[in-house]
Lab assay of single mutants.
Amino acid sequence: DYEVGESVTVMDGPFATLPATISEVNAEQQKLKVLVSIFGRETPVELTFGQVSKI
């Protein structure tokens, strides 16, 4: 299970290999909103559970 505030690594898509912090969890739809730090700015990205891995 994923929790808000948890650190994960993006495994898929254009942000693969980047660390991210979970900002929202939708367990019903198996989706997460995460904040990816790009060029010093936090960018919100919506991903599925399968696109991230716990650190």
Score class of each variant (00 low, 15 high):
E28S: 11
S37Q: 12
E28K: 11
K54Q: 06
K54E: 03
N26E: 05
T48L: 11
V34F: 00
E42V: 12
G13C: 04
L35T: 09
E24C: 09
G13Q: 01
V25W: 03
I22N: 00
G40A: 04
F39T: 09
V10R: 00
A20Y: 02
V8K: 00
F15G: 02
E6R: 04
P19F: 11
K33N: 06
F15L: 06
A20G: 14
N26A: 06
V25H: 02
G50R: 07
P44H: 14
K54V: 06
F39N: 15
Q30H: 10
K54T: 05
T17M: 11
Q51R: 03
Y2L: 06
E28Y: 08
L47I: 06
V25K: 03
S53P: 01
L47W: 00
Q29H: 11
V8S: 00
R41G: 12
Q51P: 01
V10T: 02
A16K: 11
S7V: 15
D1F: 14
Q30I: 03
V25Q: 02
P19G: 09
A16L: 05
T21S: 06
A20R: 01
T17P: 07
V10P: 02
G13E: 02
V34L: 07
P14N: 05
T9G: 03
L47D: 01
Q29N: 10
S23F: 15
V4T: 05
L32Y: 04
L32K: 01
S7P: 09
E46A: 04
V52N: 00
V52W: 00
S37C: 15
V36A: 02
E3I: 13
K33W: 10
I55N: 11
N26R: 08
V52M: 02
I55F: 08
P14M: 08
F39Y: 09
I55Q: 10
F15Q: 02
T43M: 13
E24L: 07
Y2F: 14
E42Q: 11
S7N: 11
N26W: 14
T21P: 02
T43L: 13
V4K: 06
L35S: 06
V10D: 00
G50S: 14
E28T: 10
V36N: 01
S37T: 15
E28W: 07
T48C: 10
I38K: 06
E3K: 14
G40P: 05
M11F: 05
D12E: 12
Y2E: 00
F39K: 12
I22Q: 01
T43Y: 15
G5F: 04
G5W: 04
K54W: 04
P44S: 15
V45T: 07
Y2P: 03
K33A: 05
Y2S: 01
S7D: 08
F39Q: 14
F15K: 02
S23G: 06
K31A: 06
P19Y: 10
S7Q: 14
S37F: 09
R41I: 15
I38Y: 12
I55H: 10
L32F: 03
T48G: 12
E42I: 13
L35G: 03
V52L: 03
L32P: 00
K33F: 06
G5M: 03
I38T: 05
G40T: 04
L32N: 01
I22K: 00
E42Y: 10
E46N: 07
T9I: 15
Q51N: 06
M11V: 12
E42C: 13
D1K: 13
D12Q: 10
G40C: 08
E28L: 11
F39V: 09
E3V: 14
F49V: 04
S37I: 15
F39W: 10
R41T: 14
E6L: 06
Q51H: 04
S37L: 12
S37A: 09
V36F: 03
L47T: 03
Q30R: 14
S37M: 11
V45A: 07
S23W: 12
V4Y: 05
A16W: 05
K33G: 05
P44N: 13
V8G: 00
E3P: 03
S7W: 15
S37N: 13
G5T: 02
P44A: 15
Q51G: 05
S7H: 14
L47Y: 05
P19Q: 14
T48S: 12
S7R: 15
V52K: 00
L47P: 01
T17S: 13
Y2H: 04
T21I: 15
V36C: 04
V4G: 03
V34E: 00
A27C: 10
R41V: 15
V34N: 00
Y2C: 05
E42K: 07
F39D: 15
S53A: 13
E6V: 05
V52G: 01
N26S: 08
A27R: 14
L47A: 03
E6F: 05
E6G: 08
L18S: 06
V34S: 01
V45N: 02
E3N: 11
